[in-house]
Design a protein around this nucleic acid. Structure first.
Length: 207
DNA sequence: ACATTAAGTGATT
DNA sequence: AATCACTTAATGT
């Protein structure tokens, strides 16, 4: 295992020492389930090696990945879970060989007051994972842009009874809650597949 | 010709 | 898929 100093360079010396005393080292094999949604969480993990997949699952084999955590990070969701003393609402699975240090709950708040670096660590982690979740949320909510774009063009053309649509990529992006670059790239692909013909401010549907 | 706006691209997260 | 940082191509004046 890499030293704690290397993994968490901004932790104070004292904090590192406390972690060494209070932390419980655990390791998991690749594919091993670290946590299911039935578990109660009593510890905060500091990952010191490997990657963990955090996901939500339903009973029938569907799962959606919320985010991944890797060494030098902690799991943002566990913080929320253990505060409530509720069952975990997430599953965690080892993506490869994982080593981590469990920090018992009672130290969490204590260290928040005591060490700025700990507080910052948690905050930064939380922010980052939240951002990743927004992204996966977008993928699910707005998913298959490809299809939505095709429908959009089809709709637009049939409304105006015209194969020639006058709209900018920027406008489409706006309408579909996306960005110009992404729309442009999809349109380009469609053009290569001879589905449409592109020109400035205009799109002509094939057929 | 020159400025403005639309579109294309590669790299990065 | 989004954002950034440019580049390139069309168009308007």
């Amino acid at each position: 295992m890499e030293s704690l100093h290397e993994l968490f360079p901004y932790f104070e010396k004292d904090l590192i020492e406390e972690i060494k005393v209070a932390g419980i080292e655990k390791s998991f094999q690749k594919g091993e389930i670290i946590l299911t949604q039935e578990n109660y969480i009593k510890n905060i993990p500091l990952i010191t090696k490997g990657h963990i997949k955090i996901s939500r699952q339903d009973g029938v084999g569907n799962e959606i990945v919320m985010y991944y955590i890797k060494k030098g990070e902690t799991c943002a969701s566990t913080i929320q879970c253990c505060e409530n003393r509720k069952k975990s609402n997430i599953s965690a699975e080892a993506e490869d060989e994982v080593e981590l240090i469990l920090i018992p709950l009672e130290y969490l708040e204590k260290w928040m007051m005591k060490y700025d670096s700990w507080k910052d660590f948690l905050l930064i982690n939380y922010r980052e994972k939240f951002g990743q979740m927004i992204q996966t949320l977008d993928k699910v909510a707005f998913g298959n842009l490809q299809k939505r774009l095709e429908d959009y063009l089809q709709e637009k053309s049939s409304v105006n009874k015209n194969k020639e649509i006058t709209v900018t990529h920027q406008q489409i992006a706006y309408d579909l809650n996306s960005t110009r670059e992404v729309i442009s790239r999809y349109l380009k692909k469609m053009e290569l597949r001879k589905k449409i013909k592109l020109s400035r401010g205009k799109i002509k549907l094939a057929g």
